[in-house]
Design a protein around this nucleic acid. Structure first.
Length: 256
DNA sequence: GCGACAG
DNA sequence: ATCTTGTCGC
């Protein structure tokens, strides 16, 4: 049947990204985003997928909603899903977005009053090969403000782990300090943020949808108890917990 | 051949 | 993503 070469798939995906890219809103659209203390913001969400060691198609899709500013969990949804798309760098969204979108739709159907006002996504937004990472993809398809937070630097758009980059990291003294990640063409695509006083390794924040970069960085900092913003950290912890309980590891080398 | 490659 | 505990330091 479909012996579709990977490059054909990539071509279609690039085309779809280019189309959806036009719909990204890179500015603040909500009143709470303009407030110095985010007055009016009551619910923030985090999403993530966790996998079992030797299995890359079955995963646990997680959505958590926390109250703000206390960051206590108000809602949690763990759902086993079967992924169809492979992971290809630059196309993470085609692998993860469907499951995450479904989780948001379940929430809208079952507990609409708990819908989040912003979603933290594990991965990049505009800081991406074609300025359309997972956080943008989920943002455009859901219509919700989204912030991309990556734990590792994607070397793209002329941004590299250069000596200069390393020294800029070393210059970040306190939680909340950041420096811009600017593309070769001169556009600021994201910021490296020291998310807390105790973590020297920064996180990489970029716009997903319906939020400005400065607001995204400020909000990310205000949601960090540890290095990774609490919504994403909770989603990560809870999806791993779900797998640990429901799919206990079988001892390697031990026969069934 | 070597390095890069969000999750 | 996952493989992985304790340990050194403030």
């Amino acid at each position: 049947m479909s012996a579709a070469p990977v490059q054909d798939l990539v071509k279609r995906w690039e085309s779809e990204q280019a189309h959806l890219r036009l719909q990204v809103v890179e500015e603040d659209t909500e009143d709470w985003q303009r407030s110095p203390d985010f007055s009016g913001l009551e619910r923030v969400a985090g999403v993530d997928l966790s996998f079992i060691k030797g299995d890359d198609i079955n995963a646990c899709a997680q959505l958590v909603v926390l109250n703000y500013p206390d960051l206590e969990v108000l809602y949690e949804d763990s759902q086993m899903v079967t992924l169809t798309a492979p992971y290809i760098a630059g196309f993470l969204a085609f692998r993860e977005t469907p499951s995450l979108l479904e989780a948001l739709q379940r929430l809208q159907k079952n507990q609409p009053t708990l819908l989040p006002q912003v979603v933290f996504v594990d991965g990049n937004g505009l800081f991406h090969y074609r300025e359309f990472g997972l956080a943008c993809h989920l943002g455009v398809l859901s219509g919700l403000p989204c912030v991309g937070v990556a734990k590792n630097l994607l070397q793209v758009q002329g941004v590299y782990k250069s000596e200069e980059h390393q020294s800029q990291i070393a210059a970040l003294q306190k939680g909340g300090e950041s420096f811009p990640l600017t593309s070769a063409s001169g556009k600021m695509l994201g910021k490296a943020l020291r998310s807390s006083d105790s973590s020297s390794k920064p996180v990489y924040v970029s716009v997903g949808h319906k939020i400005s970069l400065d607001t995204a960085v400020r909000l990310t900092h205000s949601c960090c108890r540890y290095r990774v913003p609490e919504p994403i950290r909770q989603a990560d912890c809870r999806s791993r917990e779900y797998l640990r309980i429901n799919f206990p590891a079988t001892d390697a080398g031990m026969k069934e």
